[in-house]
Design a protein around this nucleic acid. Structure first.
Lengths: 236, 236
DNA sequence: CGGGATCCGCGGGGATACTG
DNA sequence: CAGTATCCCCGCGGATCCCG
């Protein structure tokens, strides 16, 4: 039975919290920022949420117009995806993430979600616009992602790339550390905490697209700041 | 006993929600955006929160560095106020309020918090920079506020103004309607839902500082958009 | 009287087992 | 694989009480 309590305040903030203020709701939205996801994928990405609660949240978010069930014609995959309105939460979630990592209290030894790192990667990377388009394959937390560097942007998509110049497998925390400091790529490869197949220099370029200083006149902050903000205290 | 559950994710979003994701936490922050507040003032502004829960939230927010207890030298008023870090939540809350009023589901007949209207007023008003500084007195929900129009901005402060050109008393919803459409000021005065003392034209200028189109080259949206966004569905 | 603390019932959150 | 059913417990909510 979905939750049905309200702050009973017409204020926009209170109304927003009526919709996405319940526990786990905004983290479900975070998971859907990158791509539509299936129920089991959400469960795997959010290992501490119970299945009944996840089902409740998905029902509520769908009822409130934040997400929708992907149309399943015939053998459709039956995924959950953000509505247009739900997608407009993205800048708010990014700002909230920026705010959260400035918390004075360092968190206890916690995991780092793969989605968090990928969202940051997509959001903060500024690859050389002059470089030719390149595909990378990323294996994170048992899931494969396609990372496309093209036209000065990075796009992250779920699934195997058609072609890839290089492939990287690592823990989210390891990748996060490499994004903060590309020099750790070599040591991570050496001690086995990261595995690279293909052109190592392409991976290095990807990492530097985040960690290297941006061209001036860019909108907000330095990549280092932004990364530590998304990825957590282990980079500060 | 304050809440002590965590999402156990180093992601900045999850860490932010660990700090301000519990129920009522962000509405407490909203109340403190305008000015430091006492316990009883918060209870009055948030009539649906129980006292023990409010005390818990204040403790947690203080422990996490979002608010602090105002220093009480001698007979100090013992207020709660945002820390510098807590204050950086302001743009996030404003964006969340913008998002919330676009909810497709119109809320049931609910109240409108006075703080919500005042925050919007302060945030969205663009008075004529050439006009001389003016003070207004606002009585909203039994509380008196000083509204200062000066140098192209509006500042809202708690308490009686030293001097005021005009005074307005009304319900939050009435003021919200007047901000959306200044023409309702006259009818509200006529039917007694608003009371003006002093120079009526000054109140009208205040209302039009929000509802009139902004000078182009201003940052975001039109006042009408922004107001409906903060103030709720009754203006849409 | 303001500023909480204590008590208690309820409902949402969390874990596990089970089913279409 | 995608949820549902069941249980327990704690956070929430309302009321009352307490203390300076």
């Amino acid at each position: 039975m979905p939750t049905s309590r309200s702050y009973r305040d017409s204020c926009g903030i209170a109304r927003a919290l009526d919709v996405v203020g319940e526990r786990w709701a905004l983290l479900v939205v975070r998971e859907l920022l990158l791509a539509p996801q299936r129920f089991s994928e959400l469960r795997h990405a959010l290992p501490h949420v119970s299945s009944n609660l996840l089902a409740d949240r998905l029902r509520e978010l769908e009822h409130n117009g934040v997400i929708r069930r992907g149309l399943a014609p015939g053998e459709g995959p039956r995924v959950y995806e953000l509505t247009e309105w739900g997608r407009t939460l993205e800048p708010i979630l990014l700002a909230l993430g920026d705010w959260g990592v400035d918390a004075p209290q360092p968190p206890p030894p916690t995991a780092l979600s793969a989605t968090s790192v990928l969202i940051f990667l997509q959001h903060a990377a500024r690859p050389d616009p002059a470089a030719p388009p390149t595909n990378c394959r990323l294996e994170l937390d048992g899931r494969v992602w396609t990372v496309r560097l093209a036209s000065g942007r990075v796009q992250v998509q779920p699934g195997e790339p058609a072609t890839a110049a290089a492939s990287l497998r690592a823990e989210p925390k390891t990748l996060s550390a490499m994004l903060a400091d590309p020099a750790t790529l070599a040591t991570a490869c050496a001690d086995g905490s990261a595995t690279v197949v293909g052109d190592l220099s392409v991976i290095d370029r990807l990492l530097r697209a985040v960690s290297d200083p941006w061209p001036i006149s860019d909108q907000t902050g330095t990549p280092q700041e932004r990364h530590s903000e998304m990825a957590g205290p282990h980079t500060r």
